[in-house]
């Protein structure tokens, strides 16, 4: 009974490391948006936000230890979202 519901216990320490990484990326994104880089500011800030959200999804939300079908479903939702963004911007660029 104990073994068929095996739960992976994540250590306090690894959660703390993830927090440090998230804070580091936050401060980097604040730093790079203080300097004027034009459209690279937007790209850089969004790239760092995407990395941060990956860390939250993978470690805090336990996707790392979840079954493959759940990862697939999350990936599918992301893909739908990206597709909608791409299609919307194609529409606005070529209008």
């Amino acid at each position: 009974m104990e073994n068929n519901e095996k739960h992976h216990i994540v250590s306090y320490r690894s959660y703390f490391v993830i927090l440090l990484l998230l804070l580091l990326f936050t401060f980097i994104s604040i730093a790079i948006t203080q300097i004027e880089l034009g459209s690279y500011n937007v790209a850089g800030a969004l790239l760092l936000a995407t990395i941060k959200s990956g860390l939250v999804l993978y470690f805090f939300m336990h996707l790392k230890f979840d079954k493959p079908y759940l990862k697939l479903m999350v990936g599918f939702v992301m893909a739908v979202f990206i597709a909608v963004i791409v299609i919307t911007f194609f529409d606005y660029y070529y209008r």
């Binding site: 936050t26 994104s29 948006t33 500011n41 800030a45 760092l48 936000a49 941060k52 959200s53 805090f60």
Partner: peptide
């Protein structure tokens, strides 16, 4: 809730 804020913060506060 955290995930959403991770995107709200740069979009509203950081990008000038």
């Amino acid at each position: 809730v955290d995930l959403i804020w991770i995107f709200l913060f740069p979009l509203f506060y950081l990008i000038h």
